[in-house]
């Protein structure tokens, strides 16, 4: 698949949307993991030079976004009754 490389603003928009979605997880550990994982993956792939690789990484990111959106919904149905001890300390 010889897709064109995504533009910088498209990439940043995907990153922002992933972080926004991560924020919606009710569970502290999942919320923080998703945020970290998104940031790490974008940093890891920031130097991708050739268009096909960048397009593939972008498509993978979009797929991960769909997974995250679905899991936000699923986890909201089974939200933990107690908050993580880390969150209790922060309040």
């Amino acid at each position: 698949m010889a897709a064109a490389a995504p533009s910088k603003s498209e990439v940043l928009s995907l990153f922002r949307t992933l972080l926004r979605t991560a924020r919606q997880f009710s569970d502290y550990n999942i919320r923080e993991y998703t945020r970290r994982r998104a940031a790490d993956a974008f940093r890891e792939n920031r130097a991708l030079a050739d268009a096909p690789a960048a397009a593939a990484a972008f498509a993978d990111g979009k797929q991960q976004l769909e997974v995250a959106k679905r899991q936000v919904l699923v986890y909201s149905l089974y939200a933990p009754k107690a908050k993580s001890v880390v969150e209790m300390k922060m309040q």
Partner: peptide, 27 residues
Amino acid sequence: LDSLDTVEVVMAIEEEFKLEIPDMEAD
């Protein structure tokens, strides 16, 4: 900071002030 850091910083500011900044503005 690089552009990815900037996105994270702007998101942190959003959270601090309980805002939702649209992409167009955040860019």
